[in-house]
Design a protein around this nucleic acid. Structure first.
Lengths: 155, 155
DNA sequence: GTCAATTAGTTACATATGAAACTAATAAAA
DNA sequence: TTTTATTAGTTTCATATGTAACTAATTGAC
């Protein structure tokens, strides 16, 4: 076989990082539109609300870890949510640097409205997969996530 | 069961759109670092090179369709690549609006250097999956992509 | 042919994002 | 203690990105 024939080809449409990016962007864009249209929230604001609704009193740093957001993004999302009246901040008594974040009653209402809408969107997205396929996808993504973790970069 | 008990919960870490986004960002960031570090290219420049290397003479609009990039992003990536001396543009004889894009010899060299590196990165990413799992993942992503296509938005 | 409508691609502008510098508070070292 | 280093969070600045407006060429209607 000549060198010429051995040249590897890269078909973008079959290249996993590309496919992952396109799929993720399509899904994220759809969801972002939904949150923005219905509630005037960005994806990051919603993520912050989601974990705060789930874990009242959480700090900004911990939100960052739970949402894969950097601290600047968290800071901005929190500022926006306070501005909107959906969140309030107290300062930790034991540590004056640390914030303790809570949803306001208005924020709690929004939270409770979004959760079922978000779950329904996920359901529709997954609808073409059987429940076995859904479980398998989840498992495979888990494996990939381990393989691609930023702490142990592969390249 | 009371209404209180029926409240749905949303665990971000298990929410598919979120997991997809985190996984895709992790992978994309790793690959972007690789291209930038080794060749001084952005992901978008590399995508444009990839399809131009595969389809010499392609137009900017067609690149956009093949790479899921909007025309502004393609325009900027092409401008950067021309600046770097990796790409050249001719104007179509039959249609004066249309460009015909080609890799220069220098661009061709870079292209041939990147392709195996990119494929190797993909291989490492997928290494923890058996080949059956890889095929299954591909199939499931295909299904999801159909479900989430922007032409037929679900939400 | 002439004029309106469409298409390819670029430019301008406004917003989003991330890295680094910064402030304030706490912890650790001396 | 005081002083040095670390941590939580915000602000600043430079760059990236998307939308909309724009230019130039082509097509279609008449």
């Amino acid at each position: 076989m000549s060198d010429e024939e051995k040249k590897a080809r890269l078909r973008l449409r079959e290249f996993l990082p590309y496919r992952l990016s396109v799929l993720s962007n399509t899904v994220s864009r759809g969801i972002a539109n939904l949150y923005d249209r219905e509630f005037g929230l960005t994806i990051w604001q919603w993520r912050v609300m989601a974990v705060t609704g789930d874990t009242p009193g959480i700090s900004a740093t911990d939100i960052g870890q739970r949402t894969a957001m950097d601290k600047v993004a968290v800071s901005r999302a929190v500022a926006g949510l306070i501005e909107l009246g959906y969140m309030e901040r107290k300062t930790s008594e034991s540590d004056g640097r640390r914030s303790q974040l809570f949803l306001t009653p208005a924020g709690q209402d929004i939270y409770e409205m979004i959760v079922p809408i978000a779950l329904e969107a996920e359901r529709k997205l997954m609808a073409p997969l059987t429940s076995e396929e859904q479980a398998e996808l989840s498992r495979l993504m888990q494996k990939l996530a381990g393989s691609a973790s930023p702490e142990r970069p592969l390249w």
